[in-house]
């Protein structure tokens, strides 16, 4: 109850006036009701999507595993380890890994290093915009237990409290070879049908949301934005 109160106080304190419900008057004198949170975002909760029948799902999982589309979102110092993957030396394309510019088209989200609270907010929004079979790779020890920022006032410690993580890569920072190995183990996981993070997120949605809201004090967006 107390934390609930606290949360409400915070929401009042960090209210963004641009997101308030209001009436604007168009150049023609027409009155328009504007509710940015409703107009820009959709508030529906995520759904659990049942997998297809066993044989078909096995084939689809194989296809998904062999074409991993990675969201180009670098969060920490690990983001500098991702670009070499596309260059001649490491060349992740030959393993079916491709970089995509938009969360909607991607299936793999690499959290590349420490996540400050500010970045966590963006990362959650990006994660929720990705479509259902989606996988998360946590890169570096910062995502596992906070790493060298374990006692920092501004970086999270455990990534799996905020979004379901399929693979962790230990190291500070892991080299691109380690990321390639992570892709291989993620492929194995997907093919076995164990990588079901999106459904897990939908099932335990309230728990994840409570954790996220505990950290992000100025929560000025809907609970689920796609």
């Amino acid at each position: 109850m107390e934390s609930q109160n606290n949360n409400n106080n915070n929401q009042e304190k960090f209210r963004d006036p641009n997101l308030d419900k209001r009436t604007v008057i168009s150049p023609d004198g027409q009155q328009i009701e504007v509710d940015p949170l409703q107009d820009y975002f959709e508030q529906a909760r995520p759904q659990v999507h049942k997998p297809a029948s066993k044989v078909i799902e096995k084939f689809l999982n194989w296809a998904r595993a062999e074409s991993l589309w990675v969201l180009g979102f670098g969060t920490g110092c690990g983001s500098i380890e991702i670009p070499p993957l596309t260059t001649p030396r490491f060349d992740a394309y030959r393993f079916g890994v491709a970089m995509r510019p938009t969360p909607r088209q991607s299936s793999v989200f690499i959290i590349s290093g420490y996540l400050s609270v500010k970045t966590l907010k963006r990362a959650i929004r990006s994660y929720e915009q990705m479509q259902n079979p989606k996988y998360v790779i946590g890169l570096g020890s910062c995502t596992i237990n906070g790493g060298m920022y374990w006692d920092s006032y501004n970086t999270i410690n455990r990534l799996d409290y905020y979004m379901p993580v399929d693979n962790y890569v230990a190291g500070c920072m892991p080299r691109p070879e380690a990321i390639l190995a992570a892709f291989e183990s993620l492929k194995k996981r997907i093919k076995e049908g164990r990588a079901d993070g999106a459904n897990k997120y939908a099932e335990h949605f309230d728990w994840y949301k409570a954790n996220q809201k505990k950290v992000i004090k100025d929560w000025n967006m809907p609970d689920y934005n796609w």
Binding site: H49, A63, S67, T87, P88, R94, G96, A198
Partner: peptide
């Protein structure tokens, strides 16, 4: 194009893998 950039490039059967992956996305906006 990849060989021009001294890369190995995608596998020749990659498009046949990407299409089922795309068509089988469970949710969409």
């Amino acid at each position: 194009v990849a060989r021009v950039g001294k890369r190995v490039g995608i596998r020749w059967y990659q498009p046949w893998l990407s299409l089922p992956m795309l068509y089988s996305t469970r949710s969409s906006i």
